[in-house]
Amino acid sequence: MKNKNILLSHLKISSIVKEKSKVLDLGCGNGDLMLLLEQNKKVNIQGVEISEKAIYECVEKGLCVIHSDIDGDLNSYLDNSFDFVILSHSLQQVKRIDEVLKQCLRIGKKVIIAFPNFAHISLRLSLFFRGRAPVTKCLPSRWNNTPNIRFLSIKDFELFCKEKEYKIVEKYFITNSRFCYAFPNLFAQQAIFVIEKKH
């Protein structure tokens, strides 16, 4: 389920990204999304990834990737130097959320953020009835070895954007490898937001 959701999320991101645009993928992992975008949208894409193992996989795919912590230095990129900055399932692993998102919106004209919804019903039920930190197909790690340090819901993110005055231009929700339209904060496993600065 996890992979199918991610695949759908990648396809959605690919449909959002414009042909031949300049893209920065922060937390690009093994480069699957970058490859998809390069092939489907002929984009000029650059990745950033913290795992050395993933760097090799990206380079094997012929992708440009920088071995670095996205929490570290986004400040050396020029203003508006990318059409899209993508945080695909990496936001929940970022330490300095405020700073990173601020930088993303400075560097990119639009920022695409995909993340798992921690308020999905299965997680709520697990926490409520089992009294344990949820382990699901979408979030398979236990509390002690999860890479995630931020546990946010769709509602949380929307509130956050409102507070920061970030404009949400598009949003999509995914559950069980389908798009979800009703009560996303309860039923969606994944969310994709496209945000930009308020002009």
């Binding site: 760097i55 990206c58 071995h67 130097s81």
Partner: peptide, 8 residues
Amino acid sequence: SQKVTYCN
């Protein structure tokens, strides 16, 4: 704005 790959 150069294309760069980096690995430590």
